[in-house]
Design a protein around this nucleic acid. Sequence first.
DNA 1: TCTTGACCTAGAGTTGCTCCAACACCCTAT
DNA 2: ATAGGGTGTTGGAGCAACTCTAGGTCAAGA
Lengths: 125, 125
Amino acid sequence: MNIGEAGKLSGLSPDTIRFYEKRGLILSTKRDEKGHRYYAENDVGWLGMLACLRGTGMPLAETEAFTRLVQEGDHTVPERIKLLEGHRERLEQKRAELDRFEKHLDEKIAYYNDFVKTEEKKKAQ
Amino acid sequence: MNIGEAGKLSGLSPDTIRFYEKRGLILSTKRDEKGHRYYAENDVGWLGMLACLRGTGMPLAETEAFTRLVQEGDHTVPERIKLLEGHRERLEQKRAELDRFEKHLDEKIAYYNDFVKTEEKKKAQ
DNA sequence: TCTTGACCTAGAGTTGCTCCAACACCCTAT
DNA sequence: ATAGGGTGTTGGAGCAACTCTAGGTCAAGA
């Protein structure tokens, strides 16, 4: 499949895929006779993994490190686990922070809603 | 209090506070006789609000719009509610996406763990 | 006295995209 | 046949939101 479709399925834009390719994050990029990139099913799976790492806030340098481990073969699986588990942990913390911020946001909205209600009461008097 | 302390309490770095000030996001910045910024209790509250908006992914342009509403006075409260509720909704979607990614990540880790276990069994034979 | 540390400024550098110009190719409609 | 539209290609510019650096002021402590 072409880059547009691969992008739609994986959640990365064609621009991002090309950018990742330059950075060495794409495991396999073949070209057809016109010079257009094309991707197989499991290439798209990898793109989806990249989208997942990006979406969970992994820095590109670390995604690069992970990619290199994948390229080196099966014996790096334990290292990959370590890397992903470290990432998972940070994610956990980010989520906790997000929870606090969301609560803060909700409180602000509640405060504003109260304010409006009080104003309306004043006017009604 | 000075910018360092205000930063620590609000969760923004002094650099970020100065950067926000240039962008017009700081409601009040007074200086002492040495030209150093100082902040009162409720200035820090506002900085905390900015940290919250940033931490929940609001674009700076929108934070600027919100700041302008706050500066215009109480009659903009309904608009502020609309803005924050729109933001809240996007946040909800981002969180749903994050959940999917986290699940994906966990599945990958589980897959790798399985892989290692299977390898160990093979060796043991 | 001197050095450590916190502040100041303007501006450069970084990350991770995202968009643009300029071109190639193929399909369809006129 | 050719004009338009949609897809792809490249290199490089532009952008958001910081983050860091250089070069400076000032006050306090060893």
